[in-house]
Each structure stands twice: as structure tokens, then as C-alpha cells.
Amino acid sequence: MHKLEAKDIVKEYTSESGIRKPKILVSEIANGFRDGYYLGYQLFKRDLQASVRQSLLGFLWHFIPAIITASIWIFLNGQKVVTIQNVPMDYPAFVLTGSILWALFSESVNKPLQRFQGAKGMLTKLNFPRESLIIAAYFDVLFSAFLKLIVLVPALLLFGITPSFDWILAFLGILGLIFLGLSIGMLLVPVGMLYSDVSKGISFVLQISLYLSPVIYPMKDSGWVGMMQKLNPASSFIEIIRSSLGHYNFNLSAELILFSIIGLILFFIGIILLKLTLSSVLERIGV
């Protein structure tokens, strides 16, 4: 364990709110990330190993849903059941990229709550750095993004899209999308641990907002849909990624900057909120 003298670590627990001692709060969070890193990695590795070992399709599950969603839309569009107009790139490539990115975003939003709920038993019995669960969530989603890229990149090449330096921007955009999703997800953890409505709500809202996002059809400039798309925090990230991959114009710079800043703020709020409120939450949910 940590090679510290006993006198170096003194912990005090009182009824006072942790926010009253911001210095201690911040240093606890920082220590939590440092001390919890290995545990976070280990939890990620554990669940990955287990999921692969007890499954025939293993990693394939990371892209099957997105590929099927995309295939359905390619099929519908091809059959002229629905006609998607003004697509700035080859439609199959467009919708496949969109679906995969949306799947990644959904996963990012869901992950923190999933991680915390999955570790409920441990949380109520042991005092380990809670930040490790956030680290594990990051590993989960980053790994999933890596797997998705392994499918997406060859698919794009197959659809005749040529790689360029813009792709680097796309990869950065993916990191931004993940960061935003996880920050939103972290914010939902405290209340989500108390009430099951939250996790049900998340999946419902994500399903609905798929149709209000530039996933299966392109951005609209005007009208209600256009406005909804712009208010959707994921839109600008999906657009920057896809336009960089597919070489078309990106014109949501303002939204991208705005939602990047919001994402950053949400991250800090989320982490402080978790630190402050988790013990109040745990005493309500578990013995």
C-alpha cells in the first residue's frame, strides 16, 4: 500500500458539507484520480475479459447494433421508402458514420451511471477511490471507440473516401464527443443512483434524440428541426467528425466551441457533485 507514515494521513468525518473545505475537496479528488487509476484500469480489464470470455461474438457486439441501424437506413433509402435529401457525402458512408458516432455518444452518456450501479455492492461496503469508476468508464468508452474505428475506417475506404489530414481533426472530435457524453453522464449519477427513473429516462431520451440529430439525415439550416439539431449538444461534434472524414463543409463552429466549454464545465461540476453527494446517496440505497 502507500508508503506513508500514519501521521501523514488524517481523515475527519463530520456532518459538514465538503464544499466548505474546497482545498481538501480538490486535493481529495486529485488523489482519488491518482490512487484510483490502477483500480479503474483493472475494473475495465476485468469486465472486458469477462464479457469476451462468456460470449461467442465477443467484440463484435461493439459494432453490430450500429451496423444494423445503418444497414436499415441504407436499405430504406435505397428502396425509396424514405428519401434523405441533400446528403453531403455518399449516403451509406454518411449514415454508417452517423450511427456509429451516435452509438458512441449514447454509450458515453450511459456509462458512468452503469459503472456506479454495477459497483453498488462495493461502494456500500468498501472505501476505495470513487474516481476509479470514472476512469473505468473512460477506458470502456475509449476502447469501444477504438473498436468502432477499426470497422469504420476500412468501411469508409471501401466507400471510396480518401484519407486526409482532416481525419486527425475527426479523431480529436471523437475524443470531444466522448468527453461531452461522459460529463453529461457523470452529472446524472447521484440522482440516477437514487431513482431508477433516470436510467430509464436516459435511454428513452437518447432514442428520441437520435431522430432529432444529424445522424440518419443531414443538418437542416432552418425550421424547428434545424433549431433542435443546433441545441443538441452532440450535433456539432458529430458534424465536425463526419465532415472531416467525408470532406464536406462544417459550419457549426460556434456551437462546437460553446458545447466544448459546456462539456468542460459539466465535467468539473459532475466530479465535484459526485464527491460531495455520493455518501448521502449510498446511505439511501444500500446496507
Binding site: V10, E12, Y13, T14, T124, S279, L282
Partner: peptide, 11 residues
């Protein structure tokens, strides 16, 4: 340290 006391303190 899993629960916070409602009154009093622990060191």
C-alpha cells in the same frame, strides 16, 4: 468513511 455522521465527528 462510507457514511457521513449526521452529528459529531470521527478522526
Amino acid at each position: 468513511g462510507l457514511l457521513k455522521p449526521d452529528q459529531g465527528s470521527i478522526r
